[in-house]
Design a protein around this nucleic acid. Structure first.
Lengths: 345, 345
DNA sequence: TGTTAGCACTCTCGCACAGAGAGTGCTAAT
DNA sequence: ATTAGCACTCTCTGTGCGAGAGTGCTAACA
């Protein structure tokens, strides 16, 4: 397959780069003029014709310039994947922003989504890190008036769940505190199944709370990937391929339903090893709605402990040269932060 | 101003209602046919001409049907405001959904945003309830490995802040618990200024934590309105007035920048009393980007204690008959929930 | 053999133009 | 006060034509 001569290669790269910028079909004459090539347009035409035959280019109609095919984009991406590096100044800016921000996971996520969207001019999506082995760390019971009790559950890794319980009858704060203390001693470091396997408690209140804790831990563990953060929805509306609102609508609708979105991210990255970065071009034949779009996705986190997915969606014509290194850099950054927050425990 | 005859009134209402449905200029003939009026098209034309002169209607061009002006919409809304009621079945569905959902504020918000967007086919926006007098309820300090400490701060009303502190030196969980207990006794029910006015503590750790608590409470109180929840961004893309992407983009861009959005909501509802519902038509001359849009906004919550804002943005042609009662109903519902959660303390 | 100049061909895009259709305003009759 | 009739205006749609851009092919050239 890879029988491209050097000249064809550079030509192809040039065409794609130009088309990404200009959003227009690229003609032979234009190419010569624009890049001061030492070749005539006729030669270029021959090469273009060859590239078209090989499936890297196509023409919207008989007498228009060439436009990259999905295959063309794939080649383009595979070629520039390694060499694309984020300028150090940008790296510093981003890392600075992260260190400025709070230490709250949801703040990281929002920030990362914002950075990705802004840098890539696309739509960014991130799932919060999912703790794969959810382990109990601490529970706190705070009485409010009457039978309402605020339960705060802290997991190893820093995830905090809060929930309001309604007990059968009012219980004094003292007793609640004792219960919490007992359970803290009992459950420290245990995973869901271990907790569920514990023998029944003699104290009824203990037992009730215990049941609720199991429920809560289980719910946490089940949510395949936590919350989804997204940003930059309006970025793509500026792109010429979306002047037809219908196209834009179809793509954006995916982001309306969180469940679909989650599904998309999960499917695209099942088994993807952290650090590996995937570029999905034109929906890869699977996602009909995204036929005109590309996604750059990566997993981040610590495998086996806590991982999440992040990505950028944009038109197939998006600036891979910017998006790919940005996604990679942010993924690495988040991995570090997750790592710190785990090993810090 | 209000010199409309009964016939003009019904005619105006009919025209606007029809235009909201059809999105097209309404002609005299069409009106007669469609609604089986006992009048001829010529009579209608005279009346329409009068309504046009009074500023309630206008024509896109000399020989097209009539389209409501902003003034026309205002009249329409003022007339139907009172009588618009949400069908009981819908009310039940909504209230059911709320009672099904968790007791977490962020869950309420997401749900409310989703319901509003879905019912009104517009873009919904809600600010989380802002506790106006932030009062301390409980603090919890949980040691993690090393000098990192997870501080969980609970406010009266159930708001929970979590934060990771880095102490100067490692401190055992025992000592942290004692500190927390001391502070809990000391600070219960106090507001920010009262905490700040306390005399310095003899214990250095106590003092440090105290300072951080003040900071945190202050930060909570300062965030004019908590998080912003929004939904239904893609709904409006279906509307014909947004086939020109440029228009859509301008309106949607507002929702890209949370700060702008917050500003918008705050400005539109300053001093607005809870329960009062405002309809802003065509940006009211202030919001250039929203010239083609309308907003239905309301405040909810308990004045002086905790309030928030919610609203729906849609094209000027949006279905006020559905949106207004929905916004009102959801606002009331949220007010009740906020009320319960406060008085329950 | 690879490259280039030239040329005929094709297809889109923009524009002008005409006719249909819808709606109006006005006037005169009821 | 209402209505029928009519002339007028304006948009919308489809058609046709010329300009422009780009191609593929052939023949000449290094």
């Amino acid at each position: 397959m890879n029988e491209l001569t050097d000249r064809q290669k550079t030509l192809l790269m040039l065409i794609i780069r130009d088309h990404i910028e200009s959003a227009q079909p690229i003609g032979s004459k234009r190419l010569v003029d624009h890049y001061h090539l030492k070749l005539s347009s006729a030669t270029i035409r021959n090469e273009m014709s060859a590239l078209t035959e090989m499936g890297y280019l196509c023409q919207p109609h008989t007498s228009a310039g060439r436009v990259p095919t999905e295959e063309g984009y794939r080649y383009f991406v595979s070629q520039m994947m390694d060499q694309a590096v984020l300028p150090e100044t940008v790296q510093r800016t981003i890392s600075h922003q992260f260190h400025q921000s709070g230490s709250d996971v949801s703040q990281w996520m929002t920030l990362a989504a914002s950075i990705l969207a802004h840098q890539s001019q696309g739509i960014s999506v991130i799932t919060a890190p999912h703790i794969e082995q959810m382990r109990f760390k601490h529970v706190e019971l705070i009485s409010t008036q009457g039978r309402q009790v605020l339960m705060i559950l802290v997991m190893v890794g820093g995830e905090v769940n809060q929930q309001i319980l309604t007990l059968a009858e009012p219980v004094a704060q003292d007793r609640l505190s004792q219960t919490a203390a007992r359970l803290n001693g009992l459950l420290a470091g245990l995973a869901e199944d271990a907790i569920a396997a514990l023998p029944a408690r003699s104290d009824a209140l203990d037992q009730d709370i215990l049941t609720l804790i199991v429920q809560d831990v289980r719910r946490s563990a089940k949510s395949v990937s936590g919350n989804i953060y997204t940003d930059g929805l309006t970025n793509v509306l500026a792109e010429p391929e979306f002047t037809e609102t219908e196209e834009a609508r179809r793509a954006l609708k995916i982001f309306g339903e969180p469940s679909t979105l989650k599904d998309l991210l999960v499917r695209t990255t099942t088994g993807g090893n952290v650090g590996g970065l995937q570029v999905l071009i034109g929906g890869e034949g699977v996602w009909e709605e995204l036929r005109q779009c590309s996604m750059v996705v990566a997993r981040y986190g610590v495998p086996g402990m806590a991982t999440g997915t992040l990505g950028v969606l944009g038109p197939m014509r998006m600036s891979y040269a910017k998006t790919i290194p940005t996604v990679r850099y942010v993924a690495d950054l988040l991995s570090d932060m997750v790592n710190d927050s785990i090993s810090g425990e």
